[in-house]
């Protein structure tokens, strides 16, 4: 902790002590894991964050339950990525009968229709800031606390970005073959990788076409790709088939939409997942 933030922390403590003893936490519900982790890091003990998506459930096609509506009804802030990422979230929020609820669309979509904004860490910074602002809007008393924690977290994201830049610059192979849906477009773009996904669609609901797969096989052979990446949660059938076809090996590359039960229980963080991804990318793309 820097001196400045230590000071801020002290200040916040002082401010807090002036509040009534039974302090009520800000209640926040997020849809996806990255948002959950961002909110958790910004809010820390000032905020009670709930992850709506049950572990292991695929994010794009989730159907909220009655309990989910209840959870959100009782919350003060609801955070989702975007209409494109969670098409169900927008409709769902309309069904929530609460006027104190602040709805935050944390992500954005600039190019194409790729909703996986958190996988570009510079865009992730913007997401963090939006969440921070929402917290401040609902809980002005802790403004400086949120500013400080968000800044701290953004520092981690910037460091992560730098580490990715440094590592991925020196890779022998620049072709990222992914046996899943089109999730890593932003990441590939930012670090100048060629990205080919088995499913052209941005959602795992779409099915790959035979020509997609044939192109993948050809590319794998042409560039002598040794490793194929597969996505989290969804059983990696397509990646397995590509591996069987080309003799390449499989490596996991998690887009962190959601975690498994085990990971969640272990308290895995977004930064950890991205670091694990970098390790696998380093191995798979033969980086120095």
């Amino acid at each position: 902790m820097s001196k400045k933030s230590a000071f801020l922390f002290f200040l916040i403590l002082l401010l807090n002590s002036t509040l009534p003893a039974a302090e009520k936490k800000l209640t926040v519900v997020t849809t996806l894991f990255p948002l959950y982790d961002f909110a958790r890091n910004i809010g820390q003990d000032k905020v009670a964050v709930t992850l709506l998506l049950p572990p292991g459930i695929e994010a794009h096609s989730y159907e909220p339950s009655a309990g989910d509506v209840l959870k959100v009804s009782g919350a003060e802030i609801f955070i989702y990525t975007s209409k494109l990422m969670e098409p169900w979230a927008e409709k769902f929020v309309r069904g929530v009968d609460s006027n104190k609820l602040l709805v935050v669309e944390a992500g954005e979509y600039f190019t194409a229709k790729d909703p996986h904004t958190w996988l570009d860490f510079s865009k992730a910074l913007a997401m963090v800031n939006r969440i921070r602002d929402a917290f401040i809007a609902k809980d002005v008393a802790n403004k400086f606390f949120y500013l400080a924690t968000a800044k701290q977290y953004n520092k981690m994201l910037t460091d992560l970005d730098a580490e990715y830049q440094k590592t991925l610059v020196g890779c022998q192979n620049k072709v990222l073959i992914h046996g899943g849906h089109f999730a890593f477009g932003y990441l590939a773009q930012r670090y100048r990788l060629r990205y080919i996904a088995a499913y052209k669609g941005f959602s795992p609901e779409a099915e790959p076409t035979p020509r997609n797969l044939a192109e993948l096989v050809d590319t794998i052979k042409q560039y002598k790709v040794k490793y194929i990446f597969y996505e989290e949660l969804i059983s990696p059938r397509v990646a397995e088939v590509l591996a069987q076809e080309t003799g390449a090996q499989l490596l996991k590359l998690s887009a962190a939409h959601n975690l498994t039960r085990k990971e969640l229980d272990r308290g895995v963080s977004f930064i950890e997942i991205m670091k694990a991804n970098l390790e696998n990318l380093k191995k798979g793309l033969l980086c120095q």
């Binding site: 998506l53 572990p55 695929e58 795992p204 949660l233 059983s235 498994t260």
Partner: peptide, 10 residues
């Protein structure tokens, strides 16, 4: 059970 370790449908 609050979720599993893999998506059931896939």
């Amino acid at each position: 059970t609050k979720g599993f370790n893999i998506d059931l449908f896939s």
